[in-house]
């Protein structure tokens, strides 16, 4: 089957700022494809180009087999777009918003209700409430319902889970998973690495460039070194000591420990001796499996050293 999205060397500048630089990737039918990157990395610009709302400076973007520039009119009927900022009508009720979006696309709530049933049922008790008076989690569910009600082939979700609590986020991802059954492909962006594992494939994006595209497990497993999780009573002294240790390559805070890599991919007894000499207590050193965030850090260090130096 032809890919849902084929992006070839897409670039976009705003004045002097390059928002996207030669971005190429493909999204396949029925995938949940994630773009993981920090604020300002270019995710929203890319999504706007895919959604036919912004023209690329160069490159070609094919969505559902149509060119996003010349085919924008037909394309708009086939996609559902949920922007990062809540953009429903705050002074319409829940029900009115949903009906409005269905009507704009020439659909009806009744014919496609099955698509949104398990999302919308959470907010249906409040259908007479103004959208502006909903809580964050409910707004997000309504926005998703409105983006889906015309049965798009491709759903574009820009940071749908930002500011939403962990329970609602878990429900949200479960809902996306179910959309596959209806043949709806999804692209979704998030600044949160832990959400990457829920996607079929992810693209790591930073400073307008894609660093890597793969299944999340493969990205994680391509971490190139052995990784050690080091803990001690005083975390701040620990990380400073590790940074000064001549065999250390990288040392990053990770929860209650410091994720560390060493030259030659191992350490010997001199490390514990050194840490004890630094005055640290309760030191434990364990080898650990890299997470997707470890790999992102590694990719950023490798490909982006110059940019990082400029910023810091």
């Amino acid at each position: 089957m032809a890919p849902v999205i084929e992006s070839v060397n897409i670039s976009k500048k705003f004045g002097n700022i390059t928002a996207l630089y030669d971005v190429s990737f493909e999204v396949n039918v029925n995938e949940i494809f994630g773009f993981i990157g920090p604020d300002g990395s270019g995710k929203t610009t890319l999504f706007r180009i895919i959604a036919t709302l912004l023209l690329p400076d160069s490159g070609s973007m094919k969505v559902l087999g149509l060119d996003s520039v010349s085919g924008f009119k037909s394309l708009r009927r086939e996609i559902g777009y949920m922007p990062g900022r809540f953009s429903l009508y705050q002074d319409l009720t829940v029900e009115e918003n949903l009906k409005f979006y269905a009507t704009v696309f020439g659909a009806s709530v009744e014919e496609n209700y099955y698509l949104i049933a398990d999302i919308y049922s959470h907010i249906e008790p409040f259908r007479k409430r103004l959208a502006g008076n909903l809580s964050g989690g409910m707004k997000q569910k309504l926005a998703l319902s409105c983006a889906l009600i015309h049965k798009p082939k491709l759903l574009i979700l820009d940071e749908p889970t930002t500011g939403v609590d962990a329970v609602s986020r878990t429900e949200f991802w479960a809902m996306l998973e179910r959309l596959k059954e209806y043949g709806i492909s999804v692209i979704v962006s998030t600044p949160y690495m832990d959400e990457a594992m829920r996607c079929s494939r992810v693209a790591l994006i930073q400073n307008g460039r894609i660093l890597s595209v793969d299944a999340p497990l493969k990205i994680r497993d391509s971490f190139s070194r052995r990784l050690f999780r080091i803990r001690a009573g005083d975390k701040y002294s620990l990380i400073n000591a590790l940074r000064k240790y001549p065999e250390t390559v990288t040392a990053f805070p990770f929860g209650d420990s410091v994720h560390t890599t060493f030259k030659g991919d191992s350490y010997d007894n001199s490390l514990s001796e050194y840490l004890i000499k630094c005055g640290l207590t309760d030191v434990t050193i364990q080898e650990t499996k890299a997470g997707i965030e470890d790999r992102f850090l590694e990719l950023m260090e490798n490909s982006d050293q110059k940019n990082t130096d400029q910023i810091f």
Binding site: G37, P38, D39, S41, T162, G163, P191, M193, Q206, K235, Y236, I239, F252, P253, E293, F296, L297, M300, E301, T308, F312
Partner: peptide, 17 residues
């Protein structure tokens, strides 16, 4: 929220400090 993993870690180091 929303920052890259490197910046985020620099931030947590400031908090540890």
């Amino acid at each position: 929220g929303g920052v890259d993993p490197v910046t985020r870690r620099q931030f947590w180091e400031m908090i540890w400090e």
